[in-house]
Simulated assay, not measured.
Amino acid sequence: MLLSSLLKVVVASLCLGSIIAQKVTQDQPQVLGQEKEAVTLDCKYDTSDSRYSLFWYKQPSSGGMILLIRQDSFNQQNATEGRYSLNFQKARKSVTLVIAAS
Rank of each mutant, 00 (worst) to 15 (best):
K58P: 04
A12T: 00
L54H: 01
E37N: 11
L7H: 07
L6Y: 12
I99R: 00
K36V: 03
V39W: 11
T25M: 06
K58H: 13
Y45F: 15
G17N: 12
V98L: 10
S61H: 15
R70T: 03
K36C: 02
S94I: 11
L7G: 02
Y45H: 10
A91R: 07
T96M: 08
T40A: 04
N78K: 08
Q28C: 08
L41T: 02
L41K: 09
D72V: 07
G17I: 12
D42E: 13
S18G: 14
I66C: 04
N78C: 11
M65C: 14
K58Y: 13
M65V: 09
P60D: 09
L86C: 15
Y84D: 01
K8Y: 13
Q59K: 15
V98K: 03
Q26L: 13
Q30D: 14
T80A: 10
A101E: 14
P60S: 11
G82P: 07
F88C: 05
G82S: 12
K23I: 15
Q71M: 13
T25F: 13
T80S: 06
Q89M: 08
G63I: 03
L14Q: 01
Y57M: 13
G63S: 13
S50Y: 07
L7V: 12
F88P: 01
K58L: 08
V9K: 15
V95M: 01
V24A: 13
L54N: 00
S48D: 11
A21T: 07
V98P: 00
V39K: 06
L32P: 03
E37I: 04
K44C: 05
D27H: 15
S13V: 04
A21H: 08
R70A: 07
A38V: 05
E37G: 01
A100D: 11
K93Y: 07
S48E: 11
E81A: 06
L54I: 10
A79C: 13
V9W: 11
K44Q: 11
T47V: 10
E35Y: 11
D27P: 09
G82H: 09
Q30W: 06
A21R: 06
Q76W: 15
S61D: 14
Q77G: 05
V31K: 12
Q77K: 08
S94F: 05
Y45Q: 07
R83Y: 04
Y84F: 14
F55H: 02
T96H: 03
A100G: 14
C15Q: 06
S61V: 06
T47N: 05
L14W: 00
L3G: 12
